[in-house]
Amino acid sequence: MTLIIDTQAAAPASHARNRGTRRAVIVLNMLGLCLVGLIALTLSCGQGCLPPAHVLAALTGADAGGADFVVNDLRLPRALMSLVVGLCFGLGGAAFQVMLRNPLASPDIIGISAGAGAAAVFAIVVLSLEGWAVSAVAVSAGLGIATLIWGLSSGRGAAGARLILVGIGVSAMLNSVTSYLLLDAPAWDRAEAMRWLTGSMNGAQLVQVWPVVAALAVFGGLLAVSARDLDLLRLGDDAARALGVRSDATRFRVTLAAVGLVAFATSAAGPVAFVAFLSGPIAARLTRGGRFILPAAGLIGAILVLAGDYAGQFMLPARLPVGVVTGAIGAPFLLLLIVKANRNGGTL
């Protein structure tokens, strides 16, 4: 009898905790499955569908009877690019939103993506750079813009409406820079210009994927080791510091990681509209605000880009770049969040 009472007394903490973790694990597994399904779909179905056996044969380098070119040269680079770019945007966006405790503080709204995009266009059009050099310029610009926005909304690392408004202003300015640079580059066709305005996976090649994979490993790793401290910052600076978190150092690491992720992804595929912004709030809803927002947001980012790109290519009357599709989903969601944020202050 006493034994039963004892276990009941010990139950609440571990039980409640396990329940939360179980839910998150289920959500992450579902998202992972979803992602694998989407990749399989994009590899096997395009203008026409290939039997799974042919796709597998092509991937493993066996004789695939003509499927080799379609799968390995057209679909695989595109799927991989969508996957890593989506992961980068999802992780980077959610990191910003959690750190600044505001879903509107995502890098594509406060001008980080716009800055990286404008810098990438500048590097390509004006400086005639390629590959890693473009990424380096984009990351520097992203960090520069982050510093500028922090500075203009003046210190204390405050989230607040001020930072977001300043960011929106900076973002608009940088978008006009991008447009101006594109006007000045007559050699480009409209489709290529669209990449830098809304983001696109058109013409993705494996060589362009690797820098983003590297960025994902380095900056994603940095984010992973900062994740626990970042989670505690959600309780407010004082509470986090009382629990031994070095709040300024954490914010610096998270900013560096998130800007790195977003800038590398942007320099490869353009600022894919609203993916960074959408992933965090969806992840927060699914994991019920637990400790697993970041990985969930990464997976959701990848799902959004893969699904958006697929829909833009094959499911709509015209072939549209992925950014147009995600933008069309994101805009109403943005309005919804603003309305909601006005009502309850909006945290993540």
Binding site: R17, D238, L243, R291
Partner: peptide, 25 residues
């Protein structure tokens, strides 16, 4: 330990989850 004047409760956090945060150090 310190309990600040107005700590922020993250949306959707459970009591056990919040109390568990105290184990961080």
């Amino acid at each position: 330990g310190l309990l600040p004047q107005s700590p922020i409760a993250p949306e959707g956090i459970t009591v056990a989850d919040l109390v568990g945060r105290g184990r961080h150090p």
